[in-house]
Design a protein around this nucleic acid. Sequence first.
DNA 1: ATGAAAGCGCTAACAT
DNA 2: ATGTTAGCGCTTTCAT
Lengths: 336, 336
Amino acid sequence: MIMVNMKDVAKEAGVSLGTVSNYLNQKKLKPETEKRIKKAIKKLHYVRNNAARDLRKNNSSYVVFVLPTVWTPFFSELTFWIQKDLDQIGYKTILCLSENQYEQEKGFVDMAEEQRVAGIISVSYSNITSHVHSGIPLVSIEKEDTGLFSLISSDNYSGGELAASELKKRGASKYFFVGSDNESLKAMTARKSGFVDFCNRNHLEYLLYKISSTSNEPKFNDQLSNVTKKLIDYSKTCDNLGVFAYTDEVAFKLYLKILDQGIKVPDKIQIIGFDGWKLSKDQSLDLSSIRQPIKDIAKNAVRELDSQIKGKSFDKTPRIMLPVSFYSGKTTREVD
Amino acid sequence: MIMVNMKDVAKEAGVSLGTVSNYLNQKKLKPETEKRIKKAIKKLHYVRNNAARDLRKNNSSYVVFVLPTVWTPFFSELTFWIQKDLDQIGYKTILCLSENQYEQEKGFVDMAEEQRVAGIISVSYSNITSHVHSGIPLVSIEKEDTGLFSLISSDNYSGGELAASELKKRGASKYFFVGSDNESLKAMTARKSGFVDFCNRNHLEYLLYKISSTSNEPKFNDQLSNVTKKLIDYSKTCDNLGVFAYTDEVAFKLYLKILDQGIKVPDKIQIIGFDGWKLSKDQSLDLSSIRQPIKDIAKNAVRELDSQIKGKSFDKTPRIMLPVSFYSGKTTREVD
DNA sequence: ATGAAAGCGCTAACAT
DNA sequence: ATGTTAGCGCTTTCAT
């Protein structure tokens, strides 16, 4: 497959190489020559080689986006917006799925450096980012705060408070937190803390149910069945339980299990999840949930990266924390 | 940000540029020089510029992946596997989300040509692919068959048959198809035809319920409520209805609506969807469904593209149709 | 085994 | 307004 280049076009149009370049870069030239070049380009089906162009100009319009997976409602929405926002300002998205493997993440970062990409956006729970030596602009999303890079996250702590508060508004008589005991994820711990602190401040009775991480399915499933059983027991003696699950995944599974036992939701038990999962752009799960501002997270990450690339970022390592909101679905009651 | 290049390394190591190149390309050289180069690289933090390398070698390791969105269980799973499979054999995935906009798709294809990418994988319902002149290798997934490019799809017709057959196995007494009346999507029509043909062949009584496309949410929702009402009416006079929804999205919504009305699933009504949606790698929706072999679709698309790139594809425009399978979730009964 | 030099397709500075 | 040329960072042929 032989590729036609600027030289071919120049020859065909009977002008010099530089003139063709000027034409392609919107420089003013004599209408006559312009016409000839245009014709030559069409005749030869010339397409400019951007790889060569970028090399010469020493820039790149690629951005590497590293995240654990895209196969989850949260990550697929995030990826959707990141791609949209990057595309809007002329960047191409290189999708890199790490499955939380350090070696993979490292591989992607190395690749980013070899390709001389314009920047990196990363959602990582290891601190792979410290592996970047080359000074490539980097923005981190919802990661542990190392203080070394820009960081965009949502306000998990307030989300926990908000969940408790919304349950209180709806007259919950007893409060339950269901979440993992994995202390390594600060974001998850913050959700719990917010919930617990609100309960304490307002003298609300609460219980904490620990479950293991969702990836270990059989164990997770057993524990969830257990929690369901306990909740149903409680629901016999006291009406209107308020449950806060630390992710929508847990909330959703819990919801189905409770329904399965013939218990009415939200009549007997109200459930609030965390994330605001939507199956697609216009299809929500109808679960009541603390919604993360995913669209805003993406917008901020991209804007921040772009300023770094353009070198117009005043603060090199800003921390941006975005507010969450309550989505009222059908697993909570109407508020009076 | 000044970048160190091979010349710098050569100078530092006291060897020539070409020798450094040889070293980086695993050519054999004197252990002594090798050591010096290694040291220089480490000292200067040299990272090879792959963009330049690709230019010189006139190749590229980028693959453009064009699809409507990633924000849907089906597409997010597909994207997951495509990225994995491409990565495995050394390609980088450029993610391009078109939202079914022709202009967007065209833009991405133009970009692909300008960047001189190695190939394109596309899920498109327009025939944008005819826009590719440059001879870039292209593989199409689940698209209308133009006969011009490689095509990977799953066997929608057999899926329709399979749905009816599984309902029959489970003793359904009356059969219902719920799906869009959009005739432009061949894949969707095939699902219906398979279902209908099986019913006819086996003298099963069936009804077709048409609903509008899911993106028009209010209308879609009304129509679905309507269907639900009719189904529930039927369920009063006859037990064990068998419903085949042409996508999991519809099946799922229907399921929740029916549950909401206090009707037991699968006791009174059995539901089978299409797609085999999973919320994440290890989290299914537990909906009975005709599962598309998404992982295989990805594997085949990538393998096919790779052979085209490497020029070892015998058949330039193969059609590969992959078999679907039945996933038994909790919206159908146990089979006796 | 290593060095010197040409050239991938382009841009940009300089010359005309 | 257009042509000429150097060079982005690399690979590769051809000498040595």
